[in-house]
Design a protein around this nucleic acid. Sequence first.
DNA 1: GTGAAAGCGCTAACAA
DNA 2: TTGTTAGCGCTTTCAC
Lengths: 328, 328
Amino acid sequence: MKDVAARAGVGLKTVSRVVNGEPGVTQETERRVRDAIDALGFRRNDSARILRKGRTATVGLVLEDLADPFYAPLSGAVEDVARAHGSLLVHGSSGEDPGREEELVLALCARRVDGLVVVPASTDHRYLEPELAAGIAAVFVDRPPGRISADTVLSDNYGGARRAVEHLVGHGHRRIGFIGDHPRIHTAAERLRGYRAAMAGAGLPVAGAWTSLGSTEPARVAAECLRMTTGPDPVSALFTGNNRVTVTAVRTLTAGGRPVALVGFDDFELADLLSPGITVVAQDPAELGRRAAARLFQRLEGAAGDPERLELPTRLVARGSGERPPAG
Amino acid sequence: MKDVAARAGVGLKTVSRVVNGEPGVTQETERRVRDAIDALGFRRNDSARILRKGRTATVGLVLEDLADPFYAPLSGAVEDVARAHGSLLVHGSSGEDPGREEELVLALCARRVDGLVVVPASTDHRYLEPELAAGIAAVFVDRPPGRISADTVLSDNYGGARRAVEHLVGHGHRRIGFIGDHPRIHTAAERLRGYRAAMAGAGLPVAGAWTSLGSTEPARVAAECLRMTTGPDPVSALFTGNNRVTVTAVRTLTAGGRPVALVGFDDFELADLLSPGITVVAQDPAELGRRAAARLFQRLEGAAGDPERLELPTRLVARGSGERPPAG
DNA sequence: GTGAAAGCGCTAACAA
DNA sequence: TTGTTAGCGCTTTCAC
């Protein structure tokens, strides 16, 4: 910029004015400055600008895995909102590792992102307190923060799960299994709670062997699926706790040829084209992202008040797999 | 940092040394500094660091749409490589709009990302020349750059398409349609070229009504699908130009109950569980991203030499839909 | 082992 | 309309 000013024979501030489209520059001066800019291939260095202004026009997004079909639309929605507010999106995947989440979040804070949207892997976010105190806004999405209070956007995991299991009960099932994610993950715990509530509400017992929470690795899920649906005392229906689990379950049940009823949490592409179609409790991941980002920008624009907790409804979509009657 | 120095009763540089783990500080001094850091909740401001050092430890990724199941793994792979090199990822979606691509790329350059991975929407990248001259590295992936030369990582679109159509011909089809993306998109043009080459190689004519390139909007694709497979002179097989098109085609053909043979470009989740399974030409999007990012970091680490063009092979996966014989 | 001074490239505040 | 000065928070250089 100094070079541009020298070449155009003007002061530094005049160049700054031209570059930022500020008023108060003659057409003739502006032309001279623009010529110099073109000749020198000058581009403003935003790092310096950011340092000076204190705002980065950047928001950070930390989630588990970008490639998961559930998170991709969420991420896209956050980006859309960010762009609408003139901000860029810096992105990091925690891989469901609390340590990496903290590392990523702090790295983003060190770069002074204006705000953060976080799908937490950790259950203790006290490490964020100094950052929040320093004025960085944070909104949690899909799962609530741990040991701090902050704006949160969730789906109704408990209600959705309860509805799913009630649906199976309504179709005559009394022996229903649940395969879900690690119990330390809020959504998994809530869905388990919904499952138990529905079973209890119908007066049905839950055998210990009918619930399995843990990794969503296909190998583990397939093994649990086989274990629950075969053996001496098999379940007649399965409720699967997220899209990864559902896909593996469909694959395993199809391979085994067993007519087990199935309802999955999360919708997924092509669920309607399988035979039978897969009955699911659908969330709206894009809407989760949109709401979270919208809340973030409200905060950035100065909205005061206590943290809000928003819970979006889910929707049961019956497609066939959840309406199968119990075998025998 | 100034405050920390004051509170610890040391010089600015000593704090800097502690924060960056540089040697030359007594244990006792370090302890005093750390106490002050904790008491004040200090975090280094990376904006200032970046301004001073000139390196951002950030790479930019611009692609069409993060939520597309093809790009999500690509993006994830770029992020993995970036993290392995200690860099963060800033992300932007062009939405297939050349103007937005340029805007995004230049915004990333203004923030002085160290390098860029770009899935181009534009066909003219001369706007990047000043940036490249200024030392920003760029690698193009999935599609080549336009009117400049730069490192590029592609799939073998021509060969894969040719193989797909030869496969259909090998199963007795002589009337084969192609529905693809906008012809200005390199991959679509190459896949059309492969289709034509395979047809010509088999001595088969291509009626004008058998090819349709344009938007991948479900409505358009469904309409074209119907048009080609019904009417007085229908095709007996369809080659679809990417995963979006394939999914819509499957949906349309299933609804119509027509036994049209189908091979799609791009693999997608659950393609194997449909009935019949969908035969595809599979690319490896994660590998595309990995290779592109690896190349970028080679450049950042000083690799000299002319731009390289890498072309990854594709793989035909037969699952049933592409092995259906012609009707009648 | 430690610190003072200069400066990265920009913008805010104030002159001229 | 235009320019000058100071300083954002850090690292580099060099002196102590």
